[in-house]
Every structure is written in structure tokens, then in C-alpha cells.
């Protein structure tokens, strides 16, 4: 690894000295991905900036720094209720997805790998169906079950999305796990449940935490299915932001956006500390 880095550096130096065309190409490439990087992050940073505006316009940079819209947000009962709804739905989704995803990932370990090959497309299929279609399907179905516009219906919709993700994360975690320990526990006369609790659980705790956090954030940020399935009383923060946005735009939406983005960091930091960043990027 270090050797190849050294070689690359050495080559870069020679290139810079001897081949101007290469240098131009390198600069062009840097400009290209730099532009993409800027286009990806700048809009979000500008939104954070506008949340500190003093007046009701969305000028950037703000004319006058102020926290007045944060105060506005914290004293608005509609936003507070949406916030409570979001936390409730995300927590329930996390628990349900962890149970479904982890049991499946645990059950599939060590099994003939062909079953995963068949299962993978089946589990991934829902990701290719437009969320609006899934939303409509569930509107019709939940109405028939009498669950339309309840918390339950939104938790179920979010779990359809989050459980497969938990499954994949847990599968990756479990594939690094030492199965002989569990087999030893079984050989020593433990029940499968005891083997799981005493031999497997301590090893995969951090993996479960990471998967749970990912499920939580997925539910917190999901918007289209929640838009169709919620009522005024059960709407989540993104849904309320959407309806507010379509009526009237003011900096309070920037405040809400900033808080939603902040929640991503709150969740990401422990995961990145537990695992490497590269690992997280490859799981999603």
C-alpha cells in the first residue's frame, strides 16, 4: 500500500516535470469532480446559511445574523407535534426493522450462498418500484384494513424500506463473526437462543447499533410514503415541511432543514467511530 502510494507520488512528480499534457488532464479532472462536489454540498450549506436570516426573505448570505426563526420553530406547536411524530415513527421503524432484518441475516449465515444470490434481487426489487406507486398501493391496502393515516401504516411503509437495509448491514457484520464460538456454545448444551445471547450478541452489538441508526435515519428522512399515508395529526417533519413549502417559503423551512441535516451527523458520527467511513459508504 505504502509502496504503491510512493510510486504514484514519484510518478506525479515526473509527470509534472516532463509531461505538461498530463498535468492539464489532471487539472481538468480535478476541476470536474471539484465542480460536482461543490454542486452537491453547496445547496445544503446555503440552506443552513439562510436559516440564520433575520427577516422573512431567503437572501444568502444573510443580511443580519439572527436566531429568530429557530425561536419561531421551537414555539410552533405544529412543528413540535410533527417532530414528536417523526421520533415516534422512526423509533418504531428501528425496532421492527432490527427484529426482521437481524433474524433473517442470522438465519441465512453459513447457508449455501446460492440462496442469498436468489434472495438478493427479490429483496432489492422494491427499491426499483417508484415510491409514489408503493405509497398509492399502501393507501388502498391500508384503507381496506382500516389503518389508513395511522402511525402503524407509516411504520409499516418505512419498515418495508429499512428492513432490507438492516438485513444487508447485518449480513456484512455477521460474515466477519467467528461462528465456532456459537457452535461451541451449542455443543456445550446451550439452546440456540442462549447461544445467540452469550456467544453471538456480544460480538455483533456494535453492528446492531449501526444498523439501527441507519434504519432510524431512513425513517426520519423518508417523505413520499409518509406524505400519502399520514393525516394532519400523524404527519412527520418532512411532510409538514413539504406542505409548508408549497404554500409559503420562509426561513423556518431552512431551520427545519438544518435540524434534519444535523440529525444525520448525530447518527453518522457513532457509526463512523465504530466502523470505517469507507465501510459505511459501501453499505448504503
Amino acid at each position: 500500500m505504502i509502496e504503491s502510494t510512493k510510486r504514484r507520488l514519484a510518478r506525479r512528480l515526473t509527470i509534472a516535470r516532463t509531461r505538461p499534457r498530463e498535468t492539464v488532464e489532471l487539472i481538468a479532472f480535478r476541476l470536474l469532480y471539484g465542480a460536482v462536489l461543490a454542486a452537491m454540498i453547496a445547496p445544503l450549506l446555503i440552506i443552513v446559511g439562510t436559516s440564520f436570516n433575520h427577516d422573512a426573505t431567503l437572501t444568502f448570505p444573510p443580511d443580519q445574523f439572527s436566531l429568530v426563526w429557530y425561536q419561531e420553530f421551537l414555539t410552533d406547536s405544529r412543528w413540535m407535534r410533527a417532530f414528536a411524530n417523526s421520533l415516534l415513527i422512526a423509533s418504531a421503524t428501528t425496532v421492527l426493522s432490527l427484529v426482521l432484518g437481524t433474524t433473517a441475516a442470522y438465519g441465512i449465515q453459513g447457508v449455501d450462498s446460492r440462496i442469498t444470490q436468489v434472495l438478493l434481487p427479490v429483496v432489492l426489487l422494491p427499491l426499483l418500484i417508484p415510491p409514489v406507486v408503493i405509497g398509492i398501493v399502501l393507501v388502498i391496502y391500508m384503507s381496506m384494513l382500516g389503518l389508513f393515516q395511522t402511525y402503524v401504516s407509516i411504520v409499516i411503509a418505512h419498515t418495508l424500506w429499512a428492513a432490507p437495509l438492516v438485513f444487508f448491514v447485518m449480513q456484512a457484520v455477521l460474515s466477519r463473526f467467528d461462528w465456532q464460538l456459537r457452535d461451541a456454545a451449542l455443543d456445550l448444551g446451550g439452546t440456540p437462543l442462549e447461544a445467540f445471547r452469550h456467544a453471538a450478541l456480544p460480538q455483533i452489538k456494535s453492528g446492531i447499533a449501526a444498523a439501527g441508526l441507519i434504519a432510524f435515519i431512513i425513517s426520519l428522512q423518508e417523505f413520499i410514503m409518509a406524505l400519502f399515508l399520514s393525516s394532519y395529526a400523524t404527519q412527520t417533519v418532512p411532510v409538514l415541511a413539504w406542505s409548508a413549502l408549497r404554500q409559503f417559503i420562509d426561513p423556518i423551512i431552512s431551520v427545519v432543514s438544518t435540524i434534519l441535516m444535523l440529525s444525520i451527523f448525530v447518527v453518522l458520527v457513532p457509526i463512523v467511530l465504530l466502523f470505517s467511513f469507507d465501510w459505511v459508504a459501501r453499505q448504503l
Binding site: 469532480y33 462536489l37 454540498i41 445547496p43 446555503i46 440552506i47 431567503l58 413549502l245 467511513f277 459508504a281
Partner: peptide, 30 residues
């Protein structure tokens, strides 16, 4: 930095991402 940007953008709710472009592309936007 490159990976963090992608992951944060991926996890950010669609509403915020679309709102950001409404603000940027509006007549008074940057």
C-alpha cells in the same frame, strides 16, 4: 470529504434537497 459529502447528501430528505434548489434557482437566488 468526498465520501462524507455523498453520504450526507444521500441521507438528506428529498424535501430539503428540492427546497435547496428552489431557493438557489429562484429569481433572488444565488
Amino acid at each position: 470529504v468526498l465520501l462524507l459529502t455523498v453520504v450526507v447528501s444521500l441521507l438528506t430528505t428529498l424535501v430539503v434537497k428540492m427546497y435547496a434548489w428552489v431557493v438557489l434557482l429562484s429569481p433572488i437566488g444565488v
